[in-house]
């Protein structure tokens, strides 16, 4: 079997006296979606930053195609085909769609290295259409797009620029139900194109339908990495929210509990 596109083995990261991440392992294969789930402060951001080359890990190994590497920065990660789409800083609102699409990798032509505007616009329009993204006008500022459309343009951009691994930081968390569905569809589309996708989220209902593998983080440590066959949606939800804690919460909130008749508020029940 070919080595996985990207693998992290027992990685850890310390910031001063804070252990942000300890002993976390993650596997990403081509054409598969690996979901990273965790509540706030679980270490998701630190993990992405290690994967995307922003931070180096303090312990453990980072392997690309089975070979241990140490990335020098986000640019090197990008050059090795690891593209990261951040939730809030994916796009520049006042710039047009096509300028955003090609930002940092603009096509040039002629001896004066002039921007190839016609080609850039055509490619942006075609690529977006191929991903099923309906952009009316690639000249319109990105600020006029909805949040889901912006995420989708960022994903299409990463796919076009030859990303092999796509890291998506909470792409659905700020979106409504319908918009989140649109983004999940593009994640599936990128996966079908043979990319390895790392999908970071705190919403198991977004992760479960699209994920092939689930890594659960809690307070900087791993609760385990599960294949889809080995876990159900409810188990995932329950693990994520801290299992016993959620049971306790459900018990507290449940008005139809076994001791209902004894409860003082029972008189208001049907």
């Amino acid at each position: 079997m070919t080595p996985p596109l990207l693998e992290a083995r027992d990685v850890g990261k310390v910031f001063g006296s804070v252990i942000a991440l300890r002993g976390v392992s993650l596997l990403v294969r081509a054409g598969e979606v690996t979901c990273v789930l965790g509540d706030n402060g679980a270490g998701k951001s630190t993990l992405i930053k290690i994967l995307s080359g922003v931070h180096g890990q303090d312990t453990g190994e980072y392997l690309l195609d089975g070979v241990p590497v140490r990335l020098g920065g986000p640019r090197e990660a990008l050059d090795r085909g690891i593209a990261t789409v951040y939730q809030d800083l994916a796009m520049i609102p006042l710039m047009s769609v096509w300028r955003n699409f090609f930002l940092g990798s603009e096509p040039v032509t002629g001896p004066l290295r002039r921007l190839d505007v016609a080609r850039a616009k055509r490619v942006a329009r075609d690529e977006l259409r191929d991903m099923g993204i309906d952009i009316r006008d690639v000249d319109q500022p990105v600020g006029t797009l909805s949040g889901g459309e912006r995420q989708s343009v960022a994903i299409a951009r990463a796919v076009y620029f030859g990303a092999r691994v796509l890291i998506l930081d909470e792409p659905t968390s700020a979106l409504g139900v319908k918009q989140a569905g649109v983004v999940l569809r593009y994640i599936a589309r990128a996966r079908d194109r043979g990319l390895g996708v790392v999908f970071i989220t705190h919403n198991p209902h977004h992760a479960f339908p699209v994920g092939d593998r689930f890594l659960l983080l809690n307070r900087g440590t791993s609760l385990g990495q599960f294949d889809k066959a080995d876990i159900t949606r409810d188990e995932l939800t329950s693990l994520m929210a801290g299992g016993a804690e959620l049971d306790q919460l459900a018990h507290e909130l449940d008005r139809d509990g076994p001791d209902r008749d004894a409860a003082p508020g029972a008189a208001t029940g049907p």
């Binding site: 800083l89 796009m91 520049i92 609102p93 006042l94 710039m95 930002l103 940092g104 040039v108 921007l115």
Partner: peptide, 25 residues
């Protein structure tokens, strides 16, 4: 500004420096 890569970068670093840096500007 309008027809060179540098121009695209100028708009980008002024519009959102972090986003620009994240895509390699």
């Amino acid at each position: 500004l309008m027809r060179s890569r540098a121009g695209n970068w100028i708009f980008a670093v002024g519009g959102n420096e972090q986003a620009a840096r994240a895509v390699g500007v």
